[in-house]
Structure formats: structure tokens, C-alpha cells
Design a protein around this nucleic acid. Structure first.
Length: 843
DNA sequence: AAGTCTCGTCTTTTT
DNA sequence: GACGAGACTT
């Protein structure tokens, strides 16, 4: 079935997250697909009329398009911007229509989602009066906290329950200035609605038991820039917060505002402040660093963990992507692969052997890799099998492994676990791996042990729960489930990391709400971080006519977030920002800074060199950790027999490490669907052209023949695909080949002869041995040409010629030249290549 | 000098 | 996909 969301390339479940988000908002806002379509058409109509389209879609002056030659007058619609605006919403309606399928599938599997929890209650309440009445009578007093964060459906629930009474006992607490959850549907309108419906008695709480007066005054100065405030709409509300702390501090310091010459300087200064506060006896739990995006704190958090400074990071983490759990699941999938089909897990083994818990050296593993690459002595057609080599002291010695005992011990463990698979439960197996591999003791000795332990435990609990649900959980099912979760981008989140009870707090401004700290540092206070417009590729764009009611001024949202951040401080508040990035791109301070103070007299601070070196050095330390693996004598040996091919040349230029691992060591590679797909396409075209060549008289086989071969190819490389991958790739491949045939088969008659899959390996260019395989050589009467099938994404950059002697040119351009070199150097055939040409085979 | 186009860069927050 | 920089147009 064709659907606009169906894509021929890439991941299978590409839109899961966006769809989930979309359905969630639809449920939250009560939008039906029909309603959304109506709004979509309304918006399109507005766009197509110059009177309503808005300034972005209208030419402000005369303009002549140099390509089309069309001249537009001022006031004319700009068809390009209109078209691209409409195109933004192309997928919205098809996606929205899927909500019925989604709901049906949820019902079938007896599941419900977050929104359903309230939605179903609302539904039942409206259907069954007596049910509603029962609860209305039961809850006679209702208290709502953080009212500014309620969304439409939550509010509806409150109204339903309270409505019963003439004069209901409802008590709500909320601060409109702290409303920072617009993106999940929280809406200040609900406060107004509440006021209108219940005419409540209003009390403004002006006693503040948290912050010093200076901090209260400074943050007030900021928030007063917002128009959308209750105090602006109702003159009887006056919100002048006053300090009422028990231990009122006299001469409380004013907030400090500091700028720095670059990002690293800012971070180094912050780190130094933290260290100094600690040395003055300030408890780390009283210190907080606040930021709008978690990513910004990554370096500082890493520095602290490495330096043994306790941190408390509040961040949602998907434990399935954390190193320890990844290692565990990789080992599990290796074990299962070997159990179900010996030697089918070798591609994972290379990585597994590197895990620190096994304490093997990278050089030993490289030696084994090289050794396994060579043919076996008893059977020249077969490569050496890793599993056998690892368990054989003689072969390991031959390979040049230094720590033979160590390697053999690991091999022994792996063998033991493989044989455990049918005998013990998955939980027991995981337990054994954790303790016997040394992983557990390694992470218990590490810096971050509390968190690491929480990580492993959460995963363990997950396995236990799943096993309990289904009665029994064979390893195969567990791995299948993990694979499904991965494909569907499902996460196993841990919402709170507590590395240590008493650690410095690194918290996003959003999750800091409701918290308070003696010392607060707000950093990276630049406009691009705190006032960023939402550019959202992770959700479907919503038609403005839909969202107009929920989105008014994003800048006011952002300001509220800064307000929340500032009011977390009890006594010491420091706001910092760099004036340039580390690569000297200048950065603008957030306008919020200017709203609180005059920027003129703030000169950028320069921190002492010592701090910088301490900070940067520690970070570099970590990055250099794993890099000492290239052994020159080994590389020299490998290079002796190495022949450069176009692919390896491109890989070398792109990434030398990848070249080292993939082309020199030749680490076993996992089978991926895209590799299998590429192989199947090559297979189909190779046999198709062979048939064409051998036909007597010469006749072009039909497109069906091409597709038959493709199906055969897919079959041959079946093991590269999961069932669903197999089906989608079979579908898309057939389509692609059909298009390819339609477009080019006419010109296939032009060549005199085709030579598919020509390999040239005994040749050189200026002393460098080169080799390569040509997908197809086309022989014409007066020249030959070479065709290379590309199943990847087309990118015109790859075909670019180099502009000068310094630049390298595009990958494909280089490949074409490489083929030319091959053919020129080839002595077997006497061909001269005149042209190379790019013919893309893709969707 | 300001509008327009093109291309490269970077890409949340959470109950 | 949005935004900024830089080239191009008026």
C-alpha cells in the first residue's frame, strides 16, 4: 500500500517519535483528523490570497527571477515561499489520519497511552452521569497545585468535578509567571477560564521565603517585560514579592553578571568557582548550575566525574544506550548468535574483546584480527574462525598475542555462557556475565558507581519484569524485544540520576522548578540558547491556524523560563555568558541580561591560564584515552600486501581510523540491510546484463527478468534482513529497478558489448599497487565507458571536480578517476576509458 | 541599503 | 526545517 509516510530508504520505523508526539497533542487538544483538515484548507486559502498571506509570502519590491525570467511586482504573492510553506504540512494530514489505526492497535493489544488516562475518564464521565455524580459527591474539597501547568483535558476534569456544586470548594495555587510547559499543552488561558467560571477569592502571595530581596527585585525587573501577565490584565492584583526568610541575610550580594571571551573560559571559571566554594566548606548540594539544554553541561559534568567531584545530574537517560548496558546486550546477542549458528557472531566479537572488563590489549586483538584474516592451512577456502583461534594457545602464539592466558580465559568464559543458554534463565545468565566478566567489580571500583549500579539494576529489573509478565523469557525473545525497542526508538528511561546525595547539581531550567539552592549559576546565557525559536524536526509541523490559540509569544515563554531559573537562588546568583564560541564565532548575550542590567560596563573576564589548562587538559585526557592502538610494525606489515582501491581510498580520506579498522585490520563487519540491498541490486544487474550479452540473436531481456534476478538476489542475501526489512526492501528495490529500466533501457542498445563485474588487481599507479572491481564495462565501437551502480543517496557534491591542487574533489569523481587509472594500468585488456558517468539507482 | 535567493549548519524542555 | 551568512538584485 502506498502512503505518503512510506519511505523507500532508511530506517523502517522512521516516524515513530513524531507520530507519538502528534497523537499526543491531538488527544490533548481534542483535534480530530477532519478538524485538522478543515484548518489546513483554511490556512491554504489564507496563503493563496495576497491580502491575508502575511508579509513573508509577499514581494516587497519588484523582482525578476533570473532562471524563469518571470517578473514579480511589489505586493505579488511569492509562489516559491507559499509552495514551500504548504509543503511543510504535506505529511501532517496523512499522519493525523493514522490516529484511528493507532487507537485500534492500542485497543487490540489492551494498551493505553499517557493521554488516555485522563481522556478515558472524561469520556466515561460524559457518558455516564451517575458515575460522574458519584465522584462529584465524593470529592467535596479540591486542591490543585501548580495550576499554571495544567493542560486542556486536566482542566476539563477539574471543571467536571467542581461543576456539581453551586459554590464549589476549589482551591488552586499557581504562578502565571512560572508557566513553562506550553509545549505539553499547559496554557495560561485555563487560569482565566477558572476565574471566569468560579469567581474565586484571590490572594496574592507576596511573602517569599526563599530568596534575598535583591534577587527578587532583579527577577521582577526581568519578568515585567512580559505583557501576558495576570497583573497586567487585572489592576487589583499587585505582585511585589518581599523577602520573609527566617534567617534574613543583611547585605545580601547583588546578582553577579559576568561575560567571558569564549565558552571554555566560561566553563573553566565556573568549575573553578565550584571548587573554591567547596574548599570554603560550602556543601555541594547547595550549589546548582542551570541551563536550558542538557547538552550544554556535558563537558563540565564530564570534568567533574573525572576529577571525582560529586555531581547530581537530573536528566532523562535511555539506559539501553548507556555503555554498560550496551556491552551487556552485545555480549548477549553474540552468545545467542553463536548458540543458534556457530561462527555467525564474529563481527561482534571484535568489539566485545575490547571491553575493559576483559582487560585485553588493543594490540593483541589487532594481532588476532590479522591472523584470522589469513586462510586456514587445512582448508584454503575458509577463513580462520575466531572462536577456534581464541581457544587455541598455539595459534594465539603464532598470531603474536602477548597475553595468551588472558585471551584464553575470555574465550573460556564465552564458551561457558554459550553452553549456559539452554540451561539457565536469562536473569541468571546476565548475573553470571556481570560477575564473571569482571564488569561488576570494574564499575564498582569506578568513579560513578552509584549511577552505574542503578543503570545495571534498572536493566536487570526490566528483564525480570518482562520475564515475570510472560512467565518465561528465552534469550531469543529478550533480544528480539530489545531489537524491536531499538527499531521503534523506544526507550527505557531512568528519570533521575543521583550519583551522590551530596553533589553539585547540574539541572535543566525546566526541571529546576520547585527546587532551591544557596548558590545558583546560570550559564551560556546567550540568545541562541535561551531565546531559540523552535525548529523542530522531531515533530510534524502544525498548521498555524491550529496552533494560533496555544502559541502567542514564544519570547515570553523563554523569559518565564529564565525567571524560574533566577528565582531558584536563595542568596548567591551568578549569570554568565561567553561573547564568542570556542571557534571565535561571536555570540550575542541573551536580551534577558540586558533587561536586568546595562551591558555597557560589563567587560569580558579572562580566567587565569592555570585554570584553563586544568580544565581543558582534563577533558583532553579523556579523549586521548583510547587512541594508542596503532602499532607501526604491524601497520607496515599489513601495508606490504595492501592494494589501494577506490573504496579504500575514499575511506582513508574520510576517516583514517575507519580505514585502519575496516581496510587494514579487516574487522569482521556486521551484516546490514543496506549492504544486503546493495548486493541484491548488483546481483540483479550483473545477471541481467550477462543474459543480454549471451542472447542469440542479441535481445534485451524484459524488466521482469531484472526483477526475477533481484528477487533471487534478495533471497541469496536473506540473512542481512529482518522479516520486515526484507519485505520493504523487496518492495522498494522492485520499484527502483522498474524506474531505472524505464529511464535507461533505451540506450542499452547503444553499446556493442557489456562486460559485467570486471576485476583488475595486478596493476599499479606510480608504484602504488591498486586494484578494483568494475561493475560494468560498456564497449562501444570507438570507446568504452564504465558504469558503477550506486544504491546510496544521491549527492551532487560527490561528483564535484577538485577546484585546485589542494582540494580532493567528490568521492564519486575520485572513483571515476580511479577507474581510469585502473584501466590505463591494466595490461590484460587494451581498453582506454574516455568517460565515466553517474547513473543513480535509488528512490 | 534592503529585499531575495542559495547554501551550509545545527537540531529541547517533561508530566 | 530554521536560521544566518553571503551572493545577487533592485
Amino acid at each position: 500500500m502506498d502512503h505518503p509516510l512510506k519511505r523507500l530508504k532508511g530506517e523502517l520505523y522512521h516516524d515513530t517519535k513524531r507520530l507519538k508526539n502528534l497523537f499526543s497533542t491531538m488527544k490533548q487538544e481534542g483535534w480530530t483528523p477532519d478538524y485538522m483538515e478543515e484548518q489546513y484548507h483554511r490556512y491554504c486559502a489564507l496563503l493563496k490570497d495576497p491580502a491575508t498571506a502575511g508579509p513573508n509570502f509577499i514581494y516587497k519590491r519588484k523582482y525578476t527571477d533570473s532562471k524563469t525570467g518571470i517578473t514579480y511586482q511589489a505586493g505579488d504573492l511569492n509562489p516559491k515561499t507559499v509552495a514551500s510553506e504548504i509543503a511543510k504540512y504535506d505529511l501532517l494530514l496523512p499522519a493525523a489520519r493514522l490516529i484511528d489505526t493507532y487507537n485500534a492497535m492500542m485497543a487490540k493489544n489492551q494498551r493505553f497511552d499517557y493521554q488516555d488516562m485522563i481522556l478515558w475518564v472524561l469520556e466515561k464521565f460524559s457518558q455516564h452521569e451517575e458515575l460522574l455524580a458519584r465522584y462529584q459527591e465524593r470529592f467535596q474539597y479540591i486542591l490543585v497545585d501548580e495550576y499554571q501547568d495544567t493542560n486542556g483535558s486536566q482542566n476539563k476534569l477539574l471543571f467536571l468535578l467542581a461543576e456539581f456544586w453551586e459554590d464549589p470548594n476549589v482551591f488552586i495555587v499557581g504562578d502565571d509567571d512560572q508557566s513553562i510547559y506550553r509545549f505539553q499543552g499547559a496554557n495560561m488561558d485555563s487560569i482565566l477560564e477558572f476565574k471566569q467560571r468560579f469567581h474565586p477569592r484571590e490572594i496574592v502571595l507576596t511573602d517569599n521565603y526563599r530568596s534575598s530581596q535583591v534577587i527578587l527585585d532583579t527577577s521582577k525587573k526581568l519578568i515585567e517585560n512580559n505583557q501576558e501577565r495576570l497583573v497586567n490584565q487585572f489592576s487589583h492584583l499587585v505582585k511585589d514579592l518581599a523577602e520573609k526568610r527566617r534567617e534574613k541575610v543583611d547585605n545580601a550580594p547583588a546578582p553577579r553578571l559576568l561575560s567571558f571571551v569564549n565558552e571554555s573560559q566560561e566553563e573553566a571559571w565556573l568549575i573553578h568557582q565550584i571548587e573554591e566554594l567547596k574548599s570554603r566548606g560550602v556543601e555541594p548540594k547547595n550549589i546548582a548550575v542551570l541551563y536550558p539544554k542538557h547538552r550544554l553541561a556535558d563537558n563540565m559534568v564530564r570534568y567533574c566525574t573525572q576529577k571525582g567531584i560529586a555531581v547530581n545530574v537530573k536528566k532523562r537517560v535511555n539506559i539501553l544506550k548507556e555503555r554498560e548496558v550496551v556491552q551487556l546486550t552485545t555480549i548477549l546477542s553474540y552468545l545467542y548468535a553463536e548458540y543458534s549458528k556457530p561462527h555467525s557472531g564474529e563481527d561482534k566479537l571484535f568489539e566485545i574483546l575490547h571491553y575493559h572488563c576483559f582487560a585485553l590489549t588493543a594490540l593483541d586483538i589487532a594481532s588476532i584480527t590479522v591472523f584470522c584474516r589469513r586462510r586456514r592451512e587445512d582448508d584454503k577456502d575458509e577463513l580462520r574462525q575466531w572462536r577456534k583461534v581464541l581457544a587455541d594457545a598455539d595459534m594465539l602464539l603464532q598470531a603474536g598475542v602477548k597475553d595468551v592466558q588472558g585471551v584464553m580465559k575470555v574465550a573460556q568464559l564465552l564458551e561457558e555462557w554459550i553452553s549456559d543458554i539452554p540451561n539457565v534463565t536469562v536473569q541468571t545468565l546476565i548475573e553470571k556475565i556481570l560477575s564473571l566478566s569482571g564488569m561488576l567489580s570494574l564499575l564498582l571500583r569506578g568513579e560513578d558507581k552509584a549511577w552505574k549500579l542503578q543503570l545495571v539494576n534498572t536493566f536487570f529489573d526490566f528483564v525480570k519484569n518482562e520475564a515475570a509478565k510472560s512467565g518465561e523469557l528465552p534469550l531469543k525473545d529478550l533480544l528480539h524485544m530489545l531489537q524491536l525497542m531499538d527499531e521503534n526508538k523506544l526507550e527505557l528511561p531512568v528519570s533521575r540520576i543521583i550519583s551522590s546525595e551530596n553533589g553539585v547539581n547540574f539541572v535543566s531550567a525546566h526541571s529546576a522548578k520547585g527546587l532551591e539552592f544557596e548558590h545558583v549559576f546560570i550559564f551560556r546565557t546567550n540568545s541562541n540558547q535561551w531565546e531559540k525559536k523552535q525548529g523542530n524536526s522531531s515533530s510534524f509541523s502544525l498548521v498555524p491556524t491550529l496552533t494560533a490559540s496555544m502559541h502567542a509569544g514564544t519570547i515570553e515563554d523563554d523569559r518565564r523560563l529564565m525567571y524560574v531559573a533566577m528565582t531558584r537562588a536563595k542568596t548567591h546568583l551568578t549569570i554568565t555568558w561567553p561573547i564568542a564560541s570556542d571557534v571565535e564565532k561571536s555570540l550575542e548575550p541573551s536580551r534577558f541580561v540586558a533587561e536586568v542590567t546595562s551591558l555597557d560596563h560589563i567587560k569580558p573576564e579572562v580566567v587565569s591560564e592555570d585554570w584553563m589548562i586544568a580544565y581543558k587538559g582534563e577533558l583532553l585526557n579523556y579523549q586521548m584515552g583510547d587512541m594508542s592502538l596503532i602499532d607501526h610494525s604491524l601497520v607496515d606489515r599489513l601495508l606490504q600486501n595492501f592494494r589501494m582501491s577506490a573504496t579504500s581510498l575514499n575511506k582513508f580520506l574520510r576517516c583514517r581510523l575507519a580505514f585502519y579498522f575496516e581496510n587494514l585490520l579487516r574487522v569482521p563487519m556486521g551484516r546490514s540491510a543496506s549492504m544486503g540491498f546493495g548486493n541484491a541490486i548488483h546481483f540483479a544487474l550483473q545477471y541481467y546484463f550477462q543474459d543480454f550479452e549471451s542472447s542469440q540473436p542479441r535481445s534485451l531481456p524484459s524488466v521482469n527478468r531484472l526483477n526475477e534476478y533481484f528477487a533471487q538476489g534478495m533471497d541469496r542475501f536473506r540473512s542481512h534482513f529482518t522479516q520486515t526489512e526484507y519485505e520493504t526492501h523487496l518492495y522498494s528495490g522492485t520499484k527502483i529497478l522498474q524506474d531505472y529500466f524505464d529511464k535507461y533501457s533505451q540506450e542499452w542498445w547503444l553499446a556493442r558489448e557489456y562486460k559485467p563485474e570486471v576485476s583488475i588487481d595486478q596493476t599499479e599507479y606510480e608504484g602504488v599497487p591498486i586494484s578494483g572491481q568494475l561493475d560494468r564495462v560498456n564497449i562501444f565501437d570507438d570507446h568504452i565507458s564504465v558504469t558503477d551502480y550506486k544504491t546510496g543517496k544521491y549527492d551532487s557534491k560527490k561528483l564535484k571536480e577538485p577546484e585546485d591542487s589542494e582540494s580532493l574533489g567528490g568521492d564519486y569523481w575520485r572513483q571515476i578517476i580511479f577507474y581510469r587509472l585502473l584501466l590505463d594500468g591494466d595490461r590484460k585488456h587494451k581498453w582506454t576509458m574516455k568517460k565515466g558517468r553517474y547513473v543513480g539507482i535509488s528512490a
